[in-house]
Design a binder for these strands. Structure first.
Lengths: 120, 120
DNA sequence: TCCATATTTCGAAAATCATCGAATCGATTG
DNA sequence: CAATCGATTCGATGATTTTCGAAATATGGA
């Protein structure tokens, strides 16, 4: 994946997180762990109408930082940890290109685990 | 700074970066180092009209991730490294709250340098 | 003072985003 | 099959963002 493609994705991912409700939802999903949460529960916790929340969840999913899976009538949403790490990697590498003495050890740290695929 | 205030700021910072031109500008400023770049040069490099770029730079500055300083007729813009680290900190701590085994060592890594103030 | 330069602010048009009720879809149950 | 439940899609409205030329501001020099 070349730099430009990566940046285009980063813009979309950042945009998905750049919203009060959506950032709250993402944080909640991270805390919820691999189990994730059911759409209705997410909407209720955030006190947002289901249709509005569905819209926000779609944005997060399109940006590739959350995933959904249907289980009978319920739909589970969960944070995509590897994607989040890719985003952090992009931002940090970016940062360190110019100022390696500032956060140089972060790059190694982000390679901490080999779970590039969904580590559920 | 409590969590809610931090999140409100994070939303603004993420929103500032969630734009093709602005993310490019920020990356360019990071690479440019503490010297930063002059407004006109930024606009020219990105092939964007000065007034449009001025608007984007204002958004980045309001979000607190770039700083400006006037030097006679020129205005220097530079990336605010500590602010960027704070944003990364927020995102990573967020992430690790739920999944410490994924990127637990990142928190220590981000504390790598004590330059909480402007390290120009 | 008058002019040139660097940049910002203003203002208006176009585009995108956010919200949420109503209608629809998918799955389960009687 | 009809009813119900959980969730999404549609559609319309209002709000915000993006864009950029024209005008304004600030600085330095002749």
């Amino acid at each position: 994946m070349d730099d430009l493609t990566m940046q285009v994705w980063a813009v979309e991912a950042l945009g998905a997180l750049a919203h009060e409700t959506r950032l709250s939802v993402f944080r909640m999903l991270v805390k919820a762990g691999p189990e994730g949460m059911i759409a209705g529960a997410i909407a209720e916790h955030q006190a947002v109408p289901p249709s509005t929340m569905s819209h926000h969840l779609a944005i997060l999913e399109r940006a590739g930082i959350v995933q959904s899976e249907r289980e009978s009538r319920l739909i589970h949403y969960r944070a995509d940890y590897p994607a989040m790490r890719r985003l952090l990697m992009f931002l940090i590498q970016d940062c360190c290109q110019g100022v390696p003495e500032m956060c140089g050890d972060l790059i190694a740290a982000l390679h901490c685990s080999p779970s590039q695929s969904q580590g559920a």
